[in-house]
């Protein structure tokens, strides 16, 4: 195709700037737009935000519940229930961090500034979506603490080696497994079957899309 044809095509495109649908939108004043936006926000709240808010509320309730038990155990029976108390404290710290990260990222996505340049804003949005995945991933670290809560000091002093060796081995096994899963349960390993198996289809698609987009933007920004 001749260069002149391409140029005339571009010229024709530049002149086409009006359509009825846009005129309809432009006729709306700000009050109407605010109303329409509120209606849309309500629909979105029901459809998209409600599950997120519910998840956050459950997370906060869980952290509050664990806090109360931990505080009571460590205050009223610190020596007898030391393992139970420390296990709960471990679960509490990790759960609280995951919940706080999740809330922070959700709020940051909600309030992103669209006035920035396109690649920066889109990159920030995509990375924030990946951070949400990482926040959920932090939650995995609490798994070994579920294998220590039933231990007690007397088990190591009063019981034979075979009796306490088994729970200790189980805990070690879970520690190794958790470290492995935590290190490998990353967006970069999304293609692996076991990673896909661990997360729901919808979450997998969202994280995978964000990951692909980050790669695409990084590539786009390179001078070549």
């Amino acid at each position: 195709m001749e260069q002149s044809n391409i140029d005339s095509m571009i010229q024709a495109y530049r002149q086409s700037t009006g359509e009825t649908w846009l005129m309809n939108v432009m006729k709306l004043n700000m009050a109407c737009l605010e109303t329409l936006h509120m209606q849309k926000a309500r629909r979105e709240l029901r459809k998209l935000l409600l599950p997120k808010i519910l998840g956050i509320l459950l997370g906060v309730a869980w952290v509050a519940f664990i806090s109360i038990i931990t505080w009571n155990v460590l205050n009223y029976a610190p020596s007898q229930a030391v393992f139970f108390g420390l296990s709960l404290a471990g679960i509490l710290v990790i759960s609280a961090k995951a919940v706080i990260d999740y809330i922070r990222h959700t709020v940051m996505i909600w309030h992103i500034n669209n006035s920035g340049n396109v690649t920066d804003v889109q990159l920030r949005l995509a990375r924030l979506r990946l951070s949400q995945f990482n926040a959920n991933r932090t939650g995995l670290l609490q798994i070994p603490f579920y294998t220590t809560w039933y231990l007690y000091p007397g088990l190591f002093t009063d019981k034979p080696f075979a009796v306490w060796a088994i729970p200790v081995l189980i805990t070690l096994l879970f520690v190794c497994l958790t470290i492995y899963v935590y290190k490998n349960f990353t967006p970069a390993n999304l293609h692996k079957k076991w990673v896909k198996w661990l997360i729901a289809d919808s979450s997998w698609n969202a994280v995978n899309n964000a990951l692909q987009f980050v790669k695409e933007i990084d590539d786009f920004k390179k001078d070549r």
């Binding site: 649908w21 846009l22 309809n24 939108v25 709306l28 700000m30 737009l33 605010e34 329409l36 936006h37 849309k40 500034n113 669209n114 006035s115």
Partner: peptide, 20 residues
């Protein structure tokens, strides 16, 4: 969807206006 998107853009422009 185009109308919806246009409304959303105008609304976001208005929201971002203090930073202009």
């Amino acid at each position: 969807n185009r109308q919806d998107l246009a409304q959303e853009i105008i609304y976001q422009l208005w929201k971002s206006a203090p930073g202009y």
